[in-house]
Amino acid sequence: MIRPAARVALGMVLLASPAAAQPAPEPAKTPAPAASKAEPVKSPAPNAERVLVIGLLDKVSSETGELTLKPGETVRFGKLRITARTCEASPPWQRPHTGAFLQIDGPVRDNTMKRLFSGWLFAESPSLNSFDNERYDVWVKSCAMRFPETGPRTIVVGKSSGRASSAPKSASETPVAPPSN
């Protein structure tokens, strides 16, 4: 058992020793940009090229509608004013997810327009973040956007590596089927 005074002295020595023995940290070095001939990273469609489709229902008059919007557009449905800010869709090779950021304005008791909703609505799970209104329902149906066909890490299957023809050149290059059991 270490006496309390010895424990304090030992702690002070241990705390002071590493500070004197450690070198000063070097400033972080920023790597120089490498000159590469790789193609630039392609991103999905710009916001202006996306097309959003929303479904609408007026619960009082039973009127339904489907509106096609581009981000930034504002449309009217009944007494609502709907502005599409953006939409997103997952690429075709991933599990489907579609969402849109909408701002919905409507009249309040004194007939002034007020923001009733501002947020993301999702096509695959409409109850996750829904537009709750006693008269209207608004939901996302789709978001059309294009994705690049190739990127810097794309592997093209069946493409030959520098040869003019993909046919085998000799018998040693002929593919052999595995033996069947």
Rank of each mutant, 00 (worst) to 15 (best):
M1L: 11
M1W: 07
P4D: 01
V8N: 15
L10N: 03
G11C: 13
L14V: 13
L15P: 03
A16R: 00
S17I: 08
S17K: 11
P18G: 06
P18Y: 03
A20R: 14
A24W: 12
A28Y: 03
A32L: 05
P33W: 00
P33R: 02
P33G: 04
A35L: 15
P40W: 02
P44A: 10
P46Q: 09
P46N: 07
E49W: 02
R50A: 00
R50W: 02
R50N: 01
L52H: 11
D58K: 14
D58Q: 09
V60G: 07
S61G: 03
S61H: 06
S61E: 04
E63F: 10
T68F: 05
T68Y: 03
T68N: 08
L69T: 03
P71M: 01
E73K: 00
T74G: 04
V75F: 03
R76F: 01
F77M: 12
K79P: 01
L80H: 05
T86R: 15
E88V: 13
P91R: 15
P92R: 04
Q94N: 07
R95C: 07
R95W: 04
P96F: 07
H97K: 14
D110P: 07
N111S: 15
T112L: 14
F117E: 10
F117Y: 05
F122V: 14
A123T: 02
E124M: 04
S127V: 05
L128K: 14
N129M: 12
S130M: 01
S130H: 08
N133A: 00
R135W: 01
R135S: 03
D137V: 00
W139H: 11
K141R: 05
K141G: 05
S142N: 15
A144R: 14
E149Q: 14
T150V: 13
K159M: 04
K159G: 08
S161P: 06
S161Y: 03
G162F: 01
R163L: 12
S166G: 09
A167N: 14
A167S: 14
K169M: 12
A171N: 10
V176Q: 09
